[in-house]
C-alpha cells in the first residue's frame, strides 16, 4: 500500500518535471527562425515533442489521481537498500570532476582520493580496505596518465 502511494508521488513529480521540460521546449522554439527551406523548419519537432510531453504528463496525473498502480516491474530498490551510499558515491563523483575541471587538481592525486572515497562508500569501511583502494586508485591513475601524457602528450584538466 505504501508502495502505491510512493509510486503516485513519483508519478506526480515526474509529470511536473516533464511539463516543465515541455515549457522549455516551447520557450526555446519561440525564438527559432521560421521555416525557410522546407515547410517544417527548426521549431516543428520541439513543438510536437512539447505537446506530446504535456499530453503524457496529463495522462500520468490522471492515472495517479485514479490511484492506479503504474508499471509491473518489481521494485529493485527493495529491502536492504541504503540510498545514503548512492548519495556518497554521487557526491564524491561530483567533487572529483569539479576538482579536475575547476580546481585543476592533477589527475593522479584526484583519482587516488576519488577511488578511495568511492570504494569506502560502497564497501566495508576498514583501514585495510582504505589502503587497498588507495593503492588501486594510484595504480589506475598512473597507468591512465602514463598512456595519455607520456604516450600522447595529453593532460587531463
Amino acid at each position: 500500500m505504501r508502495d502505491v502511494i510512493r509510486q503516485n508521488i513519483a508519478d506526480i513529480v515526474l509529470a511536473a518535471l516533464v511539463a516543465g521540460g515541455a515549457a522549455l521546449l516551447f520557450i526555446g522554439a519561440a525564438d527559432l527562425p521560421p521555416p525557410r527551406f522546407e515547410p517544417l523548419g527548426s521549431a516543428a519537432l520541439p513543438r510536437i515533442l512539447g505537446a506530446l510531453l504535456i499530453f503524457f504528463a496529463v495522462l500520468l496525473l490522471i492515472r495517479a489521481a485514479l490511484r492506479i498502480r503504474a508499471g509491473h516491474r518489481r521494485d529493485e530498490a527493495a529491502s536492504g537498500a541504503d540510498p545514503r551510499r548512492s548519495a556518497l558515491v554521487f557526491a564524491s563523483l561530483v567533487l572529483y570532476v569539479a576538482a579536475l575541471d575547476f580546481g585543476r587538481v592533477p589527475f593522479v592525486p584526484a583519482t587516488t582520493v576519488f577511488v578511495t572515497l568511492t570504494g569506502l562508500a560502497i564497501g566495508a569501511r576498514t583501514w585495510i580496505n582504505a589502503l587497498v583502494f588507495a593503492g588501486l586508485g594510484l595504480v589506475l591513475s598512473l597507468a591512465i596518465s602514463l598512456i595519455l601524457e607520456r604516450f600522447l602528450y595529453i593532460s587531463i584538466g
Binding site: V115, T118, G119, I122, G123, F133, L136, L140, S141
Partner: peptide
C-alpha cells in the same frame, strides 16, 4: 568486489567522456 570494480569503472567513465 563490487566496491573496487565500480570505482574503477567510474574513473574510466570520466576519462572516456573527457577524452
Amino acid at each position: 568486489p563490487r566496491s573496487g570494480l565500480m570505482a574503477v569503472i567510474l574513473v574510466f567513465c570520466v576519462t572516456g567522456s573527457y577524452a
